[in-house]
Design a protein around this nucleic acid. Sequence first.
DNA 1: GTCTATAAATGGATAGAC
DNA 2: GTCTATCCATTTATAGAC
Lengths: 209, 209
Amino acid sequence: MAARQTRQRILDCSLAMFNTQGEPNVTTNHIADELEISPGNLYYHFRNKDDIIEQLFARFDARMDDALAAPGGRLPGLEDIWLQLHLAFECIWDYRFLYRDLVEILSRNRRLRVRFARILKRADDNAHQVMRGLSQAGVMRASAAELDAAATNVLVLATFWLNYAAVRGDKDENAAIRDGIVQVMMLLAPFLRDAERVHLNKLTQAYID
Amino acid sequence: MAARQTRQRILDCSLAMFNTQGEPNVTTNHIADELEISPGNLYYHFRNKDDIIEQLFARFDARMDDALAAPGGRLPGLEDIWLQLHLAFECIWDYRFLYRDLVEILSRNRRLRVRFARILKRADDNAHQVMRGLSQAGVMRASAAELDAAATNVLVLATFWLNYAAVRGDKDENAAIRDGIVQVMMLLAPFLRDAERVHLNKLTQAYID
DNA sequence: GTCTATAAATGGATAGAC
DNA sequence: GTCTATCCATTTATAGAC
């Protein structure tokens, strides 16, 4: 009855604590304390801490899947890319504990490793598709090798931008996300046709101020 | 007498174990076991695990300082950049445990946070200087905003490339470093004059094969 | 300098009562 | 479903003998 509710509360609370304190610094006891339930109760709902992480990952996976859904039939413009980046970065932000300790978390769990690899693959496909669209629209110009490299750079940047912001000591969450988007766009800028390049520079300037 | 030697052995062994197993998974007992000394002995030489990490960080800091030393008086060519990237990536590789759990490690220690911020600052200055050199030599062409963004992207890429390689499951160490260098170079490629762009593509092709 | 022994604290996890 | 009680393993760190 209240089972589903407790389970969800545990997941919500774990996510919040993982995100703010870092997953390695949050124990099952901390979570139980925060929720004012007993450790035994927590272990009634989840086999162990890794089980909680897997469930959170499933949520994350589904959400990222949406964000990476292929854009509509028409060729994408710069604003479409902006929107999609926003969805992706917001998702990463909401599950940033995964990214904060990505290597460590994935090294402990083979399943998550496989699933995260799939996400990266989808993101890579998506980046390629979008850039091909830009090329077809005559907005972008790049060799195949440059396009591959740019796609990879977009992935690395998106994956680790929030960590970089954290290391720099950036405090403002919204600013960090905005900066990340701008940073990715600037990755594509030099490949754009002059008119679009100017357009983008205006967009980013407006965004920054 | 053998004091200095034991101290160094502890540092060397810690570094090796941190790098291969991840710092969070290596305890002071593990290190003592591996060296076949007692935990008490280890604590005679170091106050705690964090002390060991700080000493290793000092080594890393000095080495990265060398790698980021301003290039010679003459304007740098693409090959000079290649070399410098190689030095930086080798340094990061040798102390990759720091980068694997960067946010976590820095969050635990204010001093390291400050020192790492200084390294990032130096790297940013260096990237700007190199790119200004390329611009002055007429090899590169970019607006001030594009140059700033490119410098930041170089930093993020260099900082987290090995993590990205690890997450992808890349096994070959040398290949990961090589790919990282190529990836950073490809970041600059689109800003290069056509002749240099072709030159770079030839360099990277030769490098990849 | 190095060892043995051990304290003190923590984290993960389970049994059994309610 | 939830709690109390508890166990076991691990980790950090120190005291004192050699």
